[in-house]
Write a protein that binds this DNA or RNA. Structure first.
Length: 332
DNA sequence: AAGTAATCCAACCGCATGAAC
DNA sequence: GGTTCATGCGGTTGGATTACT
């Protein structure tokens, strides 16, 4: 880095000389500077990075360190802007960048932190080591906002936030626990949260919070006394077979796999109440958590009996989604 | 198999901020 | 105090890939 700084000092000094002089009266240095700037503008590459460019950037940073991106780009011989180099390094080439699907733990964390801080992507990313703000932002836009759009909900609306809080986050929390149970039944039986699933949470504060988050969202499943009808229905609610290979899944499952009765016909009375509650946030009627609770009960019973779950087969169909949208529209 | 739509994500852009001059 | 530059952040875009018809 010191080498780079030395090089940079020269460049900055050159720029300093350039300032304070009027255009057209420059000496050789100034001319060179202007030509160089022009060349940079003319030759600037854009678009996807090549392997060679990546190699050059990695190599240069390995020897000189990162920072001072504009001069780094020039000194490394990259026909890229400093911004472009910085972005490429931070979002892709850095050795500690994690690739691959966002895990359930990370999904839960993102939803939780976003509910606290909003679109503060870099702040959120600080709590997900190896994940970049860009990646989290993309996740949010492609996965979360997509569902808001499908439900014709504003992503910042109370309805949508309630859906996240009372439906999706508990669902994710449940699946984290279920995955932990699947991989280590003994450990997962305790209430201390997932101990066997792979988490990449290194931040101490968040590390301690994650089990609490899971327990917090799981606490939405306060056991209730089911009526006979509910018991019957609960056995047939579609849900996922939450296993460790579900890590790549997203909110789609949580969004569309909502309870239906055994006959295959939607119990609109029940669904209606629940969706109204879920989407309208009316605390005076059925609590939205009970809506999800039904699904969870179903999951427990199905899972306990080691039956093959019909996660997708019994999932909500397009009519259900339309119905949900209709309810939302009526409210708007 | 071909055309089209949807999805994903790397990269870009504009703006804000702070440091250096 | 004004200007320039570097950096970081959040929003947006566009091309590659995948899914669907």
């Amino acid at each position: 880095m010191d080498n780079l700084r030395n090089i940079e000092v020269g460049l900055i000094q050159g720029q300093g000389q350039e300032r304070g002089r009027g255009r057209g009266e420059g000496d050789c240095t100034n001319d060179n500077e202007e030509i160089r700037e022009e060349d940079i503008v003319m030759d600037l590459r854009r678009g996807p990075w090549t392997v060679e460019e990546d190699f050059t950037l990695i190599n240069f940073i390995a020897h000189h360190g990162e920072g001072r991106w504009n001069s780094l780009a020039r000194c490394a011989g990259l026909k890229r802007t400093g911004k472009s180099c910085r972005l490429r390094w931070l979002n892709y080439l850095r050795p500690d960048v994690r690739r691959g699907n966002i895990t359930l733990e990370e999904q839960l964390l993102i939803l939780e932190l976003h509910s606290r801080w909003g679109n503060r992507w870099s702040k959120i990313a600080q709590h997900l080591p190896g994940r970049t703000d860009n990646e989290i932002k993309n996740y949010w836009r492609t996965r979360v906002q997509k569902h808001a759009k499908q439900l014709k909900c504003d992503v910042n609306s109370k309805q949508f936030k309630d859906t996240m809080k009372y439906l999706w986050m508990p669902r994710i929390a449940e699946r984290i626990q279920a995955a932990a149970a699947a991989s280590n039944p003994m450990a997962a039986s305790s209430s201390s949260g997932p101990t066997t699933t792979t988490t990449y949470i290194q931040n101490q504060e968040i590390q301690h919070q994650l089990p609490n988050m899971i327990n917090h969202h799981m606490s939405d499943y306060i056991p209730i006394q089911l009526t006979n009808i509910e018991k019957t229905n609960s056995l047939n609610y579609s849900t996922t077979s939450a296993s460790s290979d579900n890590y790549s899944s997203d909110l789609t499952d949580c969004c569309y796999n909502l309870p239906i009765n055994q006959s295959g016909n939607q119990d609109y009375t029940q669904v209606n109440q629940s969706t109204n509650q879920m989407c309208y946030g009316d605390q005076s009627t059925i609590n939205p958590t009970s809506y999800f609770h039904h699904g969870f009960q179903g999951f427990q019973e199905v899972d306990q009996q080691n039956m093959s779950t019909q996660w997708m087969d019994n999932s909500w169909n397009i009519e259900d989604v339309c119905f949900l949208q209709q309810q939302l529209n009526n409210d708007m």
